[in-house]
Design a protein around this nucleic acid. Sequence first.
DNA 1: GCGTGTGAACTGGTTCACAGCG
DNA 2: CGCTGTGAACCAGTTCACACGC
Lengths: 213, 213
Amino acid sequence: MKTPLPISTISRLCMVFRLCEEFQQQGKDRVSSTQIGRTLDMAAHTIRKDLNHLGEIGDTGSGYDIGRLKQHLAQALGFEQAHRACIVGLGRLGTAILEHEAFDVNGYEIVAGFDANINRLETMQTRTQVYPAYEITEVVAREAIELALITVPREAAQDVAQALMAGGIQGIINFAPIVIKPDSEAVVVRNINIVNEMRILSSILNLNDAAPE
Amino acid sequence: MKTPLPISTISRLCMVFRLCEEFQQQGKDRVSSTQIGRTLDMAAHTIRKDLNHLGEIGDTGSGYDIGRLKQHLAQALGFEQAHRACIVGLGRLGTAILEHEAFDVNGYEIVAGFDANINRLETMQTRTQVYPAYEITEVVAREAIELALITVPREAAQDVAQALMAGGIQGIINFAPIVIKPDSEAVVVRNINIVNEMRILSSILNLNDAAPE
DNA sequence: GCGTGTGAACTGGTTCACAGCG
DNA sequence: CGCTGTGAACCAGTTCACACGC
């Protein structure tokens, strides 16, 4: 699947959007690429390049109007309506995410949780509707769920992904330490692996020590 | 800070390392770039390019010896000795990570946990030593902690990072929804933001719908 | 024939530099 | 004078293609 914008640009634009919300809360109504760059630790020209993928949106000489900027970003990135999401795997990480207040305010509605352990489902108290894992395909289809977070152990991850895709899921964020392969071009998968991130970090440190400036 | 290897290469090599462990457990002792590529969903030539950053390590015609490969990777990436890490913020996400068995087997030792809430510290039962947040700088220095995971709320994240850096931390993985700026060239920071990842994912979907192939 | 290693070609994202405007 | 928008220059990483060895 080919994106019209580079992924790195999309990622930065999402951060800029976040920042707009914050600045707005602080009562600001204008912002320049320099200021954005400073809080996001990026070069100002990178921000400018990113932003005018959306068209000419700034005012020469005086930066960007935060309201307008936010609106354009929301429109381009699809933040205008809430997205329906689910979590598969209600272990510690899954419930941590499930209970995370921030999702409400951020345009995501977690409409279902799944777990293979029936006992766990019964004892859980959460406002989110929970289902046994074998209902994944059916519920995803019926509830028109777009996105899924996978927080199950490695062994189960690929099967879970298969069930989600059978139900017509569009996007998956996978936290299990395995690379999930999309079924078709129509499914987008992002793999996030915390242990791998730690390894990357220590590798960077190690390589730098070995070959210092 | 400039790395001798591209970050993307490092990231892939870490995954290859992981895969070696798995293949070894399955009793395999040789592997080809094609096989690696298949399970990691990457092109074989990418894997080969990555691997011979480490020197000529494969055997022409018959792939790589897993034992030797793993050893070279471990050496290059610094996985030979365990790394001392800590977690700041023992809320749901923090404790989920703390209790995650996988860290032991993966060469990381979590030697300290911190939280600003003294009551929480008292009621926690964990085999990891816990400290109040105001001791961060001191403990990091005394215990020679290299890596930190930040799982505190946004407001606290930059202060926590400052305290860690004052104690001489080398690497930080930050889960708070804010970009942590390193103090100096000597500190490496990786920012991971789950909500942002979800936004990136739905943006990709949205952009694809808007401009389909 | 399969699989590695590698120089060469390519690609696209990043950086630069400056014109244009309030 | 500060800040945006943008074409051009740059560069790093990716991809290709093929020689060589088992």
